[in-house]
Design a binder for these strands. Structure first.
Lengths: 335, 335
DNA sequence: TTGAAAGCGCTAACAC
DNA sequence: GTGTTAGCGCTTTCAA
């Protein structure tokens, strides 16, 4: 292994000069710099990053906690994170947590054990909860996508309530009155906000929200399939269903078709996220599109501020959404 | 920050004893052990992992190079990797490379710079190609899923040629004679093998493979959509299309339906991978299912052998596939 | 079984 | 502008 010492000998300078040439090139003479760089090249020197990190007490590693990398929405967020991180010379350590708190805590411990500088959490859980961190100083973390109720850290989010209301308004404008909903996991603030937006729209239209028309799901196609089965066989069948994710909407559409009904003829179906498959489903999905990559970029920018000891301004960023109308929703045909 | 020194003082032992208690508990007296563990608890001590890694010259970090985490097949492989790695007390650093060689090389450099012990590469590219590594000793790498032509390292793979032949045989058995193909990127060995299997089946059935019926894609729904557009508008329209990924098959089905044809009535469509959406497409996809998680588990097992300086036996693992027949393929109706 | 002590490769004072 | 040197926190001889 070639160390900095070997390079120093080769260049006829001290190890300090080699270190400076690599970290603060301006501070050494052009002549020295050339000499050192040549020696680095000749020796095939690559710094031992662990030694660097050990000594300088920072790693330039960012831990990203993703509930599941399989989700295409998260995949886009990740792209945004990587792009922004690399531009600022940070590395991204992606952690597929499967939504398990134990896994999230284990990965977050990479910060307390000095293997990473900060955390970007994409789910509503504080992985430092059982830690001494965050009692006094700000946590080295930002929360994105699904946001903590009591944010002990900066957040980047969507106005889920407004977006859900917008989507429900669209269904109401098409004449729908019996609008079912397939929501996400009970504990999720994101789900709670979207349900609130759905209720807002119904109330504004003079309709009475009925709890029994809200079915729980978990964002997978399978859960959408199952919930749609229950919705479609009610005797007061809904004429429209709002799914909190495109994955669930795709499952729901299949279930509805299997029971001999048509989409949107008998039941309109709307999703949320605008994943790639949304435009390839049959019929193509009406949905809410989110600027997924921007979530990632914003989160990185804010985290780097936090790591510098500053408070990002604004501390809570809200990103815009867009209603994308495709063929899965249509005017109600019967009443 | 609590260091090992503080714990040692608290327990009234030397730092060496604290270290031993944590790493080699058997080597210290139960009494000492208890004393130390109590001090660890009291001090809220967490070892500085960077110092540990620096000193012991290993990190127990595994770098995983994934072309795109958005792909649901890779997501399953990742799950398998994580499961196996954690069981052996290794951490997984997931790297979303977008298939860019520069990104792969940058992440692989985490090994040469001591930030990770080894690499699991899911694509057919040697990220150490421009490195001094691997000239003499074996590379700290295993290759999975899509396998290098000249493997300088152990591999875990599917018999893509046999699987493609099996799927094509299925179409031939249904009476299809004009079978189109939507393949993957040109340079990919995986694609080359699947095309070979497709040809094997045609030849065995006395059919003449026709290069003009093979259209290039890139595994995305969009590329399947486009290629299917060309296939479906040929005057000698195929009665079946074999897509090298389910994603492309889903795009192809939509395009075929849009042109007023039915699947499988006019054209049967088959995919490859058996992703979650495969059973939720309309019609549900006939496809080849792969033991994705097993790819991950096998790759980890082999890599850990390599890191121990052993040669894994066997050095090349071939995993089984399975033909899953659903509704997107049917007997040919006209000739 | 335990302790003392020598570093791992690098950075950052400090001195020149 | 460059060199000397003192560690960063831990593991691992070696000796007791």
């Amino acid at each position: 292994m070639t160390t900095i010492r070997k390079v120093a000998e080769l260049a006829g300078v001290s190890v300090a000069t080699v270190s400076r040439t690599l970290k603060l090139p301006d501070v050494v003479t052009p002549k020295t710099r050339a000499k050192v760089l040549e020696a680095v090249e000749a020796a095939g020197y690559e710094p031992n990053m662990i030694a660097v990190q050990f000594r300088s007490r920072r790693t330039r590693n960012l831990v990203v906690l993703v509930p599941t990398v399989a989700n295409t929405f998260f995949a886009r967020v990740i792209s945004g994170i990587q792009e922004a991180a690399h531009r600022q010379d940070y590395r991204v350590l992606l952690c597929n947590t499967l939504g398990e708190e134990a896994a999230e805590e284990a990965y977050a411990r990479m910060v307390t054990t000095r293997q990473a500088d900060g955390v970007i959490q994409l789910r509503a859980y504080n992985p430092f909860a059982n830690t001494s961190l965050g009692k006094g100083d700000p946590l080295p973390m930002v929360n994105a996508c699904e946001v903590l109720d009591e944010p002990p850290c900066p957040t980047v989010t969507l106005d889920n309530r407004a977006a859900a209301r917008c989507l429900t308004d669209h269904l109401i404008a098409l004449g729908h009155r019996r609008i079912g909903m397939i929501k996400g996991p009970r504990r999720s603030p994101l789900t709670r906000d979207r349900v609130a937006g759905y209720r807002d729209a119904l109330l504004a239209a003079g309709l009475v929200p009925d709890e029994s028309w809200i079915y729980p799901g978990d964002f997978t196609p399978k859960s959408g399939f199952e919930a749609a089965g229950e919705l479609a066989t009610r005797k007061d069948r809904p004429t429209a269903i709002f799914c909190e994710s495109d994955e669930m909407a795709i499952g729901a559409i299949q279930r509805i078709k299997q029971s001999g009904l048509s989409v949107p003829g008998d039941i309109s179906v709307a999703g949320f996220d605008d994943i790639a498959f949304a435009s390839y489903s049959d019929p193509p999905l009406t949905t809410i599109s989110q600027p997924a990559e921007a979530f990632g970029r914003e989160a990185v920018a804010m985290l780097i501020e936090v790591l510098k000891g500053k408070t990002p301004v604004p501390a809570h960023t809200v990103l815009p959404y867009e209603l994308v109308v495709r063929a899965s929703t249509a005017p109600v045909t019967s009443i």
